[in-house]
Design a protein around this nucleic acid. Structure first.
Lengths: 156, 156
DNA sequence: GCTTTAATGCTACAATGTTGCATCAACGCC
DNA sequence: GGCGTTGATGCAACATTGTAGCATTAAAGC
């Protein structure tokens, strides 16, 4: 809402992370910035663990709980969204504008999750009376290209 | 408590739990029988916890681990299927014949999961090359009829 | 620089699921 | 029916994922 001075010294740090946080009235902390940047960099939804590793790689010291809370806040603000991957852990990805919801692909071999940008998750058909639809989540399961069909059966 | 199964009004003929187990070459134990009966009785996918409660109610002593393993076996055999509810815990429901996969509705208020028998989860569209689709899972989120719109706050 | 308080870091805990291993019991065989 | 084999169970301990409480730190505004 308010004017931001031009941070011309922001070498490789995308300004949008800071703007994104400020636009939601949150304090700009290194954890939040790093988390957003990790999500921006990642080509697929990241688990809490992967984000933590990214922070470590970036030299950002952090606590497990802090990361959980940072992610909670991002989801709460609508900046990020949670995805139920199939495993017990949540995955997170940035809410790429508006309510655009796409489907995801979960590789049952490597556990990786990929975005299927082309495939909308908004298959919202007939619901019983009284039901109120908030959003829909479509997850396709199978084997990704990397895992190929090199191994044909995997437990779990 | 062994009642005559009432299947006069539905096309879904309850298969004897014992037959189901035997057909897959498993041993007929009281735990497995009770789990299958609990899933048959339940009108919606049950969590491990709910199944455990059902076993207790039926006077079937059991261990937590035994229940996990019984459920694992059922899924492995294709008798039951796992559903990622959105919470961390799995839900289980019987694989009601063939590969019929329907969508599910997760109430964000009460956490209940319901089957949407009418809504197929088979929205299998374009996948990138090399990808192998095994199954798809469609979960709709919102408020169920019971929770109605009595409370409007939602984590969305 | 100083104040306010959101955000962090730590400890402890809760919930869910897994592993190893000794024991039990389901099933086939006699 | 009794017996042996082996799958299934029960128990203890552990692993993973996520939360709650609270003192401390640091971001934002003055």
């Amino acid at each position: 809402m308010h004017e931001m001075p031009d941070h011309s010294h922001s070498a490789f740090v995308p300004v949008s992370a800071r703007d994104l946080i400020a636009a939601h009235g949150g304090r700009i902390t290194r954890t939040r910035v790093a988390v957003i940047e990790a999500l921006q960099t990642g080509q697929h939804p990241l688990s809490h663990d992967e984000i933590g590793a990214a922070l470590n790689a970036a030299g950002i010291a952090h606590d497990r709980v802090t990361l959980y809370r940072a992610l909670d806040w991002l989801v709460e603000q609508g900046i990020a969204q949670r995805i139920a991957g199939g495993e017990r852990a949540w995955r997170f990805e940035l809410q790429s504008g508006g309510d655009h919801r796409h489907a995801h692909f979960h590789c049952d071999r490597c556990g990786q999750i990929l975005c299927l940008e082309d495939v909308p998750a908004t298959a919202a058909p007939v619901l019983p009376a009284g039901f109120e639809l908030a959003r829909s989540e479509l997850v396709l399961h199978g084997a990704c290209a990397d895992c190929g069909r090199q191994n044909d059966q995997t437990g779990k």
